[in-house]
Amino acid sequence: MSTSPAVPGPAAFLEQMMLIRAFEERSAASFAEGRSPGTCTCVGQEASAVGVVAALREDDLILTNHRSAGHLLARGADPGRLMAEIMGRSTGYCGGKSGTLHVSAKELGVILTSTIVGGELSLAPGVALSLSMKGSDAVVACFFGDGAACEGIFHEALNLAAVWKLPVLFVCENNEWQAFVHRRETMLTENIASRAAGYGIEGRTVDGNDAEAVFAAAAEAVERIRETKTPFLLETKTYRLRGHFEPDDQGYVDKDELATWRARDPIATLRSRLLSSGALTTGEAAAMDRRVAERLDAAFSFAAGSPWPSLDQLTTNVYA
């Protein structure tokens, strides 16, 4: 059995989140310049990604969705290979076949990304079944949004995982938006986690913009899953600060709501807290900025300089 992950310090969370944010913003800029396809960014949701992923062991598995860059980068994905995938280049994690929407990286334990909203929920119990039938105590973290929580498969997946006692950490990143529809139009309750009780499992809602709080809640949930062999529904309350899919000017978003959540930006909040408490010096913060910029410069030039897939790839990997 692998050992539990070390508790990351807040500065480590900050730098990871900065990397994710900068990656997403550069990717959006690259799209605006016509150099890559549009993406579904996770801008605003970085704390949820880094907090949950930090609570996982190396042998735990991750299922993600169309808003996956945060989960992948938090798990240690190479930003160059990730951007190469988005750009459709042969050096990407999936050889350029997945593009931005379905990136899986088996070597990182990030498997079976589905971009069908709720698709990841449909796959998670089976992955957990494999783990438990092998006798492993590893867990599956399945990331989905409040939109997926309104799909029928949400019910089927949580119910089956509960009945079969499967080790799934269901992580609902409740970002208030379901493509172009506000969550308030599609559900009457404020929280998704309260639905856990209907399946006889535990659920919890946590501030999804506080990486340390997310980490603590996820670590506890993962321990509960390993102990009780029962799934757990963790809801991270966060906000999608950019639009659904580039380009999206968010003209439909309430200005006050956006302002409220911008003021709660998980990166700015943590950075200013660490700076004002003295846990981080301005020099160290500047060094982080520099490291992130350097990594992304290298990543984007690697991706842009990578070859396209050969055309015979059109029909390879269809069958095993």
Partner: peptide, 28 residues
């Protein structure tokens, strides 16, 4: 009972669980 299981009448999750299990080493 671990290898021969009844399921809820829920075809989506039955097929999805098969796909998830198949991708990770089982033959459902």
């Amino acid at each position: 009972a671990a290898r021969v299981r009844n399921t809820p009448l829920a075809e989506g999750i039955i097929a999805g669980t098969a796909a998830g299990a198949a991708a990770t080493g089982l033959r459902p």
